[in-house]
Amino acid sequence: MPDERGRRYPPWHADMPGEECDAFFLREERERERVMGKEKRYYLDTVATHPDYQRRGAGSMLLQWGCDFANQDKVSAYADATKDAARLYERFGFVDEPTRLG
């Protein structure tokens, strides 16, 4: 939960559009709360593999690692995913919850 973990990222560099970055991540936090409520969960954040190594099982290993922690602690897991990765997440039991933008 955000209040348990503290700030997600260090302060933005002066060259970064800090307000836009903060607004983007605030929308993500609100979307996670809309979907999961106040339920304790693990958020599998920034799971990615280099394009040269995709479709070789690395993504599955990363998801399995995160899901194992969630199962061990008996909590749900949440991930934001691209449409391209949706099938991978579905194989691990994740369900698509359409995003409400606005």
Results as ranks from 00 to 15, higher is better:
residue 57 G to E: 03
residue 85 A to Y: 02
residue 78 Y to G: 01
residue 95 V to W: 03
residue 26 L to Y: 06
residue 75 V to M: 08
residue 90 E to N: 12
residue 29 E to V: 06
residue 32 R to Y: 01
residue 97 E to C: 12
residue 35 V to W: 04
residue 73 D to A: 13
residue 65 W to M: 10
residue 42 Y to G: 00
residue 8 R to W: 08
residue 38 K to F: 02
residue 85 A to N: 11
residue 63 L to Q: 09
residue 2 P to W: 12
residue 58 A to F: 13
residue 26 L to R: 14
residue 89 Y to F: 15
residue 70 A to H: 02
residue 52 D to S: 14
residue 37 G to S: 11
residue 28 E to Y: 12
residue 83 K to V: 12
residue 56 R to H: 09
residue 81 A to F: 13
residue 35 V to P: 02
residue 53 Y to Q: 00
residue 94 F to V: 03
residue 32 R to G: 06
residue 88 L to F: 07
residue 1 M to H: 12
residue 14 A to K: 15
residue 47 V to K: 00
residue 64 Q to K: 14
residue 3 D to C: 13
residue 35 V to E: 01
residue 82 T to D: 07
residue 2 P to Y: 10
residue 2 P to C: 08
residue 21 C to E: 11
residue 11 P to W: 04
residue 2 P to H: 12
residue 5 R to F: 15
residue 33 E to F: 07
residue 6 G to S: 03
residue 36 M to F: 05
residue 75 V to P: 03
residue 91 R to S: 15
residue 93 G to N: 07
residue 71 N to D: 14
residue 59 G to I: 05
residue 3 D to W: 15
residue 86 A to D: 11
residue 77 A to G: 11
residue 69 F to A: 13
residue 60 S to G: 15
residue 82 T to M: 05
residue 47 V to T: 02
residue 18 G to L: 05
residue 47 V to I: 15
residue 100 R to D: 10
residue 85 A to C: 05
